[in-house]
Structures are given as C-alpha cells and as structure tokens.
Deep mutational scan, measured.
Amino acid sequence: NQESVVAAVLIPINTALTVGMMTTRVVSPTGAPAEDIPRLISMQVNQVVPMGTTLMPDMVKGYAP
C-alpha cells in the first residue's frame, strides 16, 4: 500500500509547506504520494488543511503529481 502525505498540524490557507507540517499514512482515497514530500516543501496550500487531513493534489498551488 502506498503512503500518502497527511497534515501533521493545522495548516492555514496560503501557508508554505515545511517538512514538519507533513507526515505519511496509508489512507483511502490516496492523496499526494509520500515520495513527493521534497517537491511539496515551500509550496503553498490554497485552503485550510486540518490536522490529520490527507493532502490532495488540488490543495497545493502549482502541484501536479
């Protein structure tokens, strides 16, 4: 099972992602793949992402898996 990126903390809208904001988990439906964490760092979210929420590609500005 592939791990997806999950918010480790509450991420406010327009916040640039840091490694400490993200964790990985096997979830369904799958979100952004765990191996993309290095690409996701410094990208901004376009909505509030509550802690424990799977990071879906459409939540991150300019990100395409």
Results as ranks from 00 to 15, higher is better:
residue 1 N to V: 14
residue 1 N to L: 13
residue 1 N to F: 12
residue 1 N to Q: 14
residue 2 Q to P: 12
residue 2 Q to F: 14
residue 2 Q to A: 12
residue 2 Q to G: 14
residue 3 E to V: 11
residue 3 E to W: 13
residue 4 S to L: 07
residue 4 S to Q: 01
residue 4 S to I: 07
residue 5 V to A: 03
residue 5 V to T: 00
residue 5 V to E: 01
residue 6 V to E: 00
residue 6 V to W: 07
residue 6 V to I: 13
residue 7 A to G: 04
residue 7 A to K: 01
residue 7 A to R: 02
residue 8 A to I: 08
residue 9 V to N: 03
residue 9 V to M: 12
residue 9 V to T: 11
residue 9 V to H: 02
residue 9 V to W: 06
residue 9 V to Q: 11
residue 10 L to C: 13
residue 10 L to S: 10
residue 11 I to A: 00
residue 11 I to R: 02
residue 12 P to K: 10
residue 12 P to S: 09
residue 12 P to G: 09
residue 12 P to V: 09
residue 13 I to C: 12
residue 13 I to M: 13
residue 13 I to D: 10
residue 14 N to Q: 02
residue 14 N to A: 06
residue 15 T to H: 01
residue 15 T to M: 09
residue 16 A to Y: 15
residue 16 A to K: 13
residue 16 A to C: 12
residue 16 A to L: 13
residue 16 A to Q: 12
residue 18 T to W: 09
residue 18 T to N: 05
residue 18 T to D: 07
residue 18 T to I: 08
residue 19 V to I: 14
residue 19 V to A: 15
residue 20 G to W: 15
residue 20 G to L: 13
residue 20 G to M: 14
residue 21 M to I: 06
residue 21 M to L: 03
residue 22 M to A: 07
residue 22 M to Y: 04
residue 22 M to E: 07
residue 23 T to S: 11
residue 24 T to A: 14
residue 24 T to Y: 08
residue 26 V to R: 13
residue 26 V to P: 00
residue 26 V to A: 10
residue 27 V to Q: 03
residue 27 V to C: 08
residue 28 S to Q: 13
residue 28 S to Y: 15
residue 28 S to C: 13
residue 28 S to H: 14
residue 28 S to R: 09
residue 29 P to L: 06
residue 30 T to F: 15
residue 30 T to I: 15
residue 31 G to C: 02
residue 31 G to D: 03
residue 32 A to G: 00
residue 32 A to W: 13
residue 33 P to C: 07
residue 33 P to T: 00
residue 33 P to L: 09
residue 34 A to K: 10
residue 34 A to T: 05
residue 34 A to Q: 03
residue 35 E to C: 14
residue 35 E to G: 13
residue 35 E to V: 13
residue 35 E to P: 02
residue 36 D to Q: 02
residue 37 I to M: 11
residue 37 I to V: 08
residue 38 P to G: 11
residue 38 P to S: 10
residue 39 R to P: 03
residue 39 R to I: 12
residue 40 L to P: 03
residue 40 L to Y: 01
residue 41 I to M: 06
residue 41 I to F: 01
residue 41 I to R: 00
residue 42 S to P: 03
residue 42 S to E: 01
residue 42 S to H: 12
residue 43 M to I: 06
residue 43 M to C: 14
residue 44 Q to F: 12
residue 44 Q to C: 13
residue 45 V to C: 06
residue 45 V to Y: 05
residue 45 V to G: 01
residue 46 N to K: 10
residue 47 Q to W: 09
residue 47 Q to M: 09
residue 48 V to I: 12
residue 48 V to N: 15
residue 48 V to S: 14
residue 49 V to S: 00
residue 50 P to Y: 10
residue 50 P to H: 11
residue 50 P to L: 10
residue 50 P to K: 10
residue 51 M to S: 10
residue 51 M to I: 09
residue 52 G to M: 06
residue 52 G to K: 04
residue 53 T to G: 08
residue 53 T to D: 10
residue 53 T to N: 08
residue 53 T to Q: 11
residue 54 T to P: 01
residue 54 T to I: 06
residue 54 T to E: 01
residue 54 T to A: 03
residue 55 L to P: 04
residue 55 L to M: 05
residue 55 L to S: 00
residue 56 M to Q: 10
residue 56 M to E: 03
residue 56 M to T: 08
residue 57 P to S: 06
residue 57 P to M: 06
residue 57 P to N: 03
residue 57 P to Q: 04
residue 58 D to K: 12
residue 58 D to E: 14
residue 58 D to H: 15
residue 59 M to T: 01
residue 59 M to H: 00
residue 60 V to M: 01
residue 60 V to W: 06
residue 60 V to L: 06
residue 61 K to E: 12
residue 61 K to I: 15
residue 61 K to F: 12
residue 61 K to S: 11
residue 61 K to A: 11
residue 61 K to P: 11
residue 62 G to M: 05
residue 62 G to N: 12
residue 62 G to R: 02
residue 62 G to C: 10
residue 62 G to I: 04
residue 62 G to E: 06
residue 62 G to H: 07
residue 63 Y to F: 05
residue 63 Y to E: 00
residue 63 Y to T: 01
residue 64 A to C: 15
residue 64 A to D: 11
residue 65 P to E: 10
residue 65 P to W: 08
